[in-house]
Amino acid sequence: MFSIITDHWATLCAGLGYTLMASLIALVGSLVIGTAFALMEISHRKWVRLIGRAYVELIRNIPLLVITMAFFVIVPMFIVKVDGFTAGTIGLTIYTSAFIAETVRAGIESVAVGQMEGARSVGMSYTQAMVHIVFPQAIKIVIPPLGNQFINLVKNSSVLAFVAGFDLMYQAKIIANLTFDTFDTYLAVGVFYLVLTMPLSYLMRYLEKKWVTA
């Protein structure tokens, strides 16, 4: 296993870079899109709510691979050229946005409206109330699920291997085919994924525990 890591260090690091990049871009993208759809879901207009709901339900029930392949195969045929990395990242973004939308909607609904009113009634300005009262609470609600989504993104980004997206899994397959040493290669790549996800996973658990009990 160690010879795989030392012999193919550059390849693995390149893969790690693409994995991380795709995950980060998708995190930001899905946050924006997810929040937008969350806001639509709690809109006062019925048809806006309906669109929001339909998007979330549809995307949640279709496999990430199918969404990604659609961007890789269909979009370039008719609309615009997207390469494997882009198709994979867009697929990840759209897929994750449905889950973010659910998280954000639940978060917004759980924040008591009274908090803001209470802060205003003791003489805080709107901005003060937002900065000192609402925002700190909102972050505590949002960070743990977002962290978990990021872990999921890192894991799910392995779908890029299907569309030649140069990620860790794609490089793993290439190394396995070069060395014919499947066992050690996947063991080594597993370690690379764990280096990314394990610390994050423990950090999230720590934050959850700290903030829930506090």
Partner: peptide, 18 residues
């Protein structure tokens, strides 16, 4: 070089202009 998982996928990718 873009490596795909099988020939069906590879030919589809060529048709898609990948």
């Amino acid at each position: 070089v873009l490596q795909l998982s099988d020939y069906a996928q590879a030919f589809t990718a060529l048709k898609s202009g990948q």
